[in-house]
Nucleic acid binder design. Structure first.
Lengths: 192, 192
DNA sequence: AACATTCTGGACCGCTCGGTCCATAACGAG
DNA sequence: CTCGTTATGGACCGAGCGGTCCAGAATGTT
């Protein structure tokens, strides 16, 4: 062993993620990233590889730390309608507060997915899991008698689509007051 | 008068628009744009100004030629539910065919709106008109007895959100089969 | 204390970016 | 036919990009 790193990998990765989230991939320059992450140039390249690899790590980190548990709660066996309600209200709240930076996965889908297979793979995995989460929550709601749904698959897709819509709405600075209406309307539509 | 331009302004603007639509703003280089538009460098700068101005012109052109009539049809006095149905089915079809390039206005909202006031203004105008179009269609549907809606404002926002969702869904290559489910589900929710 | 190994920071690199300049070609007016 | 004006295309520009190199500092091992 020799000299130890002076920074915590996860801490600086978090900073990179925040910056990509706010700026987008192309618009974030390495110089700015270095400033934001507050580490040396070589340290970054040694630890994360090139810009693209750093972005993939950031995106993965975003999913793991920001969305994984949220999506998992949708599929909780005691969730049902309330899980869906919490998902949308939480998202609406997050999306319509100060930085209005949408969701990194949605942003990446728009900016990079068509020309970047690795980003596309992460995004597709997310969409799949989200849809599955909604489907599970609907099944639970169904069995609890909270809702009467004839085509769970269709409704799950519809909820997924609605979740995606919050991204552009956030970037267009639609205020919480209106996103709350959206969230409530979604719930009304599936209540028995 | 002197020498006439060798190209048609609208034709080359259309090409620029298509290219921005497929690539995004940052990822589209002037050199590629010149190739695609098939005009000389100086001609471009003389005719459209700089890259940013060219983009604004493209975005405006996209709205005028691609969305204006579509949104207007929503507000048609004989529209109602069928207008909403046609809007979503048409969009779902467009979004899930070959280039999967979503909608230029949604893409621009994500990539540029937060840091580009002029783009933000165009996007906001679009969102506003779209919401208004949905509200009008819902009023017509109401008066025709096609739907019974207690809160038109909330449903209009919900439809707007759903329309925005199609963008990310397109980029994630969700197939038409599933977007059709989304479209149908939206309609089911507002039918009386 | 001496060494091997790793991390650090800044000088440096080639390249592509968006944008300008300018000599030349094409055209209408007189 | 001549002249003035405009369009054209390619040479050219400074700047910023992502990425590499390398000398030196810091640390664990022996």
């Amino acid at each position: 062993m020799a000299r130890a790193k002076e920074f915590d990998r996860e801490v600086v990765l978090e900073r990179a993620m925040e910056f990509f989230w706010a700026q987008g991939y192309e618009a974030a320059s390495m110089r700015e990233l270095l400033d934001t992450m507050d580490i040396g140039r070589q340290s970054l390249y040694d630890t994360f590889g090139d810009k693209h690899s750093l972005f993939l790590a950031s995106l993965q980190h975003y999913y793991e730390k920001g969305m994984r548990t949220v999506v998992a709660q949708l599929a909780a066996p005691d969730g049902g309608l309330s899980a869906i309600e919490e998902y949308f209200d939480g998202m609406a709240r997050r999306m319509s507060t100060k930085p209005y930076r949408s969701c990194l996965l949605i942003n990446s889908a728009i900016e990079l997915a068509p020309h970047d297979p690795e980003v596309a793979a992460i995004v597709n995995r997310f969409v799949k899991k989200l849809r599955k989460g909604f489907a599970k929550a609907l099944e639970v709601a169904q069995s609890k008698g909270e809702a009467r749904i004839d085509d769970i698959d269709a409704v799950a897709w519809h909820l997924t689509n609605s979740a995606m819509g919050l991204g552009p709405m956030s970037k267009a600075r639609v205020p919480y007051k209106d996103l709350k209406l959206v969230s409530e309307q979604i719930l009304k539509n599936i209540r028995a």
